[in-house]
């Protein structure tokens, strides 16, 4: 417990240093990192993104939501004494001593153009737009590169055999960071393949749920018009109160 408290304190201190410009003399724990080949000493416990900002870098790209959802801050690194080339989202991963870091602001890739209403729901559609999936050597590098821990290689294999459902399920949490694509020896753009497969599955593979259909009918019939009017007329305080008291599904 004592340890945990210390760590939390370190993190809090470090974050404060970034946001408030606390005197570095007050920071107790430091790590050495390398950003694009240059060494910097930064407070321990910062995220990679915070550490880079502390070091003086300003993100004009390669940063977005800062919450692990947008996929903009793809990062690659090696650690001193290790041969593994690792990947991370800069906003979600804390710096560690001896990291050699580089940002991957963009994975060079062209997204196929298609009219989803005209594409046949067959294996050939994925192969036609992304024929390179047939070059997959099942090396599994993409899976190892995925910061979302998706089974990327498996969904590319599913794509090759036209199993849209499995691709959609396995790639659902993809944040399009592109790290799979930059590591792929077969030059596949996995994240785009997953996107097309999910769109196809959403349109042709999933059955429209009954409850959604019923709710749409209710909306058309004006069942909620009165409630909507009340909400639109409510002031900010009232909205805040109602937001806090709203019913939610379990996370």
């Amino acid at each position: 417990m004592e340890d945990k408290k210390d760590i939390m304190q370190i993190i809090a201190d470090a974050n404060k240093s970034v946001t408030t410009g606390i005197d570095s003399a007050d920071i107790e724990h430091w790590v050495w990192i390398h950003i694009m080949g240059r060494a910097y000493q930064v407070p321990a416990g910062l995220t990679i993104m915070q550490a880079m900002e502390y070091a003086g870098y300003k993100f004009i790209t390669s940063a977005g939501c800062r919450a692990g959802f947008c996929g903009a801050c793809a990062t690659m690194y090696r650690k001193e004494g290790e041969y593994k080339l690792q990947t991370a989202m800069a906003c979600q991963t804390r710096v560690e001593d001896g990291m050699f870091l580089v940002q991957i602001p963009f994975a060079p890739a062209q997204e196929a153009t298609y009219d989803i209403t005209k594409e046949p729901y067959a294996a050939s559609t994925l192969l036609e737009h992304y024929p390179e999936i047939a070059r997959c050597v099942a090396c599994n590098t993409c899976t190892k590169a995925c910061p979302q821990d998706l089974e990327v290689m498996d969904y590319i294999q599913d794509a090759l055999r036209g199993d849209y459902k499995k691709v959609a399920e396995r790639s659902f949490d993809c944040i399009q960071c592109g790290l799979c694509a930059v590591r792929c020896p077969a030059e596949i753009t996995q994240f785009n393949v997953g996107m097309l497969a999910r769109r196809m599955y959403g349109r042709y593979g999933m059955t429209e749920p009954e409850y959604a259909k019923a709710r749409l009918t209710e909306l058309d019939q004006g069942k909620y018009d009165k409630e909507f009017k009340k909400l639109l007329a409510a002031d900010v305080e009232e909205l805040k109160k109602r937001y806090a008291a709203r019913e939610r599904e379990a996370d």
Binding site: A123, E128, E132
Partner: peptide, 22 residues
Amino acid sequence: LMNIPKEEMEILPQIALVSAFR
């Protein structure tokens, strides 16, 4: 491989594409 005719891509089995690309 980006310019295989669409009508061919619709019928070619995976086994043909994988082996050709290899």
